[in-house]
Design a protein around this nucleic acid. Structure first.
Length: 563
DNA sequence: GAGCCTTTGAAGTGC
DNA sequence: GCACTTCAAAGGCTC
């Protein structure tokens, strides 16, 4: 029921339209979703030519403003803000946005949630602030996240009700949606030097969580609208209030997860949680057992005196705070169910291939929404876990995979060494994870597409003799993975690229050269030199204001085949 | 039952 | 600063 419900919820999301009334391929719309699925299906089933033509036609359907969304940050933000215009607004700019990613019975960032090890997130239309929204109105709403919703791993998109859906999260002021906003790196809220989101700034956070710290303890909790579960109110402060941002909260699992994950006052007043500020409803909110913030050894003699074994044990007990999801991960979570529903495939690896391709088929604007959402995810994450760092999870996983990847790197080096010989030999078929007998062949995975795709050896482009990638190529939002296997694929197909490149470099716009892009590029085969534009597209947008570049080279021209 | 596979993006590490 | 590595989700599969 949950899987259908989320789609059903989407059904109510009216397509986000541009001012011209032209549909902008909103993924939230059911018809659009169906179109996306059709696109995926066609791309999976049909020849790449069909797929590419479809993609191109779709690209042509896109209104230019949408294309320009990332070419002109201001315009982009105007696009995003547009929903605030009552005359035009009919729904969130994209499914589930703005929404709260409320974990399914566990904190989304906590892998060891009590009931949901996977920590699947449930996407809920954000109701915050709800001060002006009668809770009963939402509670009565049958579409409000019921336990069924919450128990389902499929993201649930809460349709907007009674209030402007964008109000809760974003004020969409120019300050907040400055040109640097959508992507991450050089966002005004990001430290340009470190790339780390700046420390919580009340003024900046207010759009997100407009509640002042002092108001938190005086008003009903925004989750009060949640449907009670198992006879218990979804929101009922435990005696200690929000004592703990982690699953060990002394409340029922759903409550704890819902509250702790996204609504913990920590995210409201996280900067100095230890301060006995009156703004925090309960001083105990900052629990001394907050494991998220390991006490400095100098300040904790007891800890420093502990034996390494004890410390190790404590670390083991430490909740595992997961990384915030990036834009693609958010997209995957949202779209996976749809793809799975439309495809007999169930293996995530295959699904991910499809999703990866769909991701590249997204318009810039659509991707921007996820970039923005991911940025907010990171920001919220930093609020919830101020001291958390990706380093905390670094190397925590088993080494088996790592060793394998290392071996892959070594083998890849061997492949590169044999690259020259490869050019004159028959191409080695790419190892395709997607089983060929599956009904839904991943276009990016078929042998043909892989072999026909013009992979660009990074070495070739790095060579002084080789023309540098065009600005437009460098400005692509695609940040090429440098995974060994992907690089190996690059090497495998380098010969194909080189031969094609010879005919393509004359114009200097390889991205628009049909011979090079007879098929949608397998994601893994996208050349590093072409697409490695750290800090990738969003960053480029921020750092270099590469608007003309982006304008000159829409994403679709690179990721899609050209006529 | 741990880990692999597969994707992209963010961030850490190492040089 | 660059290249590389790790992790985030997902679930079937392998060992």
């Amino acid at each position: 029921a949950g899987g259908g419900d989320d789609l059903g919820a989407n059904d109510e999301l009216i397509p986000f339209q541009d001012e011209g009334g032209e549909e902008q391929e909103p993924s939230s719309d059911s018809a659009s979703a169906q179109r996306d699925l059709d696109e995926v299906k066609s791309s999976l089933v049909n020849e790449s030519e069909n797929q590419s033509s479809s993609s191109d036609s779709e690209a042509e359907r896109r209104p230019q403003p949408a294309r320009d969304a990332f070419q002109k940050p201001r315009d982009y933000f105007a696009e995003v803000r547009r929903p605030q215009d009552g005359a035009f607004f009919k729904g969130p700019p994209y499914p589930g946005y703005p929404f709260l990613m409320i974990p399914d019975l566990s904190s989304p960032y906590l892998s060891n949630g009590p009931l949901s090890p996977g920590g699947a997130r449930t996407y809920l239309q954000m109701k915050w602030p709800l001060l002006d929204v009668p809770s009963s109105a939402t509670v009565k709403d049958t579409r409000s996240p019921s336990p069924a919703h919450l128990s389902n791993k499929v993201p649930v998109v809460q349709p907007p009700h009674h209030m402007h859906p964008l109000t809760p999260l974003i004020t969409y002021s120019n300050d907040h949606f400055s040109p640097g906003s959508p992507p991450t790196h050089l966002s005004p809220e990001i430290d340009p030097k470190t790339g780390i989101p700046r420390p919580p700034h009340p003024a900046e956070l207010s759009p997100y969580y407009p509640l002042s710290p002092g108001a938190v303890g005086q008003i009903p909790h925004p989750l009060g609208w949640l449907v009670p579960q198992q006879g218990q109110p979804m929101y009922s402060l435990p005696p200690g209030g929000f004592r703990h941002p982690y699953p060990a909260l002394a409340m029922n699992a759903s409550m704890s997860s819902l509250v702790s994950s996204r609504f913990s006052p920590h995210m409201v007043a996280p900067a100095h949680p230890g301060l006995p500020t009156s703004g925090i409803p309960h001083p105990a909110i900052v629990s001394p057992i907050v494991k998220q913030e390991p006490a400095p050894p100098s300040l904790s003699p007891a800890v420093s005196a502990k034996s390494p074994v004890t410390v190790k044990k404590e670390e083991e007990k430490k909740p595992h705070v997961k990384k915030p999801l990036n834009a693609f991960m958010l997209y995957m979570k949202e779209m996976r169910a749809k793809v799975v529903a439309e495809c007999t495939l169930k293996e995530s690896a295959a699904i991910n291939q499809i999703l990866g391709r769909k991701w590249h088929n997204l318009s810039r604007e659509e991707q921007a929404k996820y970039y923005e959402l991911a940025r907010k995810e990171r920001q919220l994450h930093s609020q919830l876990y101020p001291t958390w760092s990706a380093r905390d999870n670094y190397g925590k996983k088993k080494k088996r995979k790592r060793e394998k990847q290392l071996s892959q790197t070594q083998s890849q080096q061997q492949v590169q060494e044999a690259e020259g010989a490869l050019a004159s030999k028959s191409k080695k078929p790419c190892v395709q994870y997607l089983p060929p007998e599956k009904s839904c062949d991943s276009p990016a995975s078929s042998h043909g597409s892989m072999l026909d795709s013009p992979a660009t050896p990074s070495a070739a482009l790095a060579s002084p003799a080789a023309p540098a990638a065009t600005h437009s190529e460098q400005a692509q939002p695609l940040s090429l993975t440098t995974k060994p296997e992907s690089r190996a694929q690059l090497a495998l197909h380098s010969a194909a690229f080189l031969s094609a490149k010879a005919t393509a470099t004359s114009s200097g716009q390889m991205g628009s050269q049909p011979p090079l892009l007879s098929r949608p590029l397998p994601l893994g085969s996208l050349p590093t030199a072409l697409l490695t534009s750290p800090p990738s597209f969003p960053a480029a947008l921020h750092a270099h204001q590469a608007l003309p570049v982006l304008q000159a080279q829409p994403l679709s021209l690179v990721t899609k085949s050209a006529h």
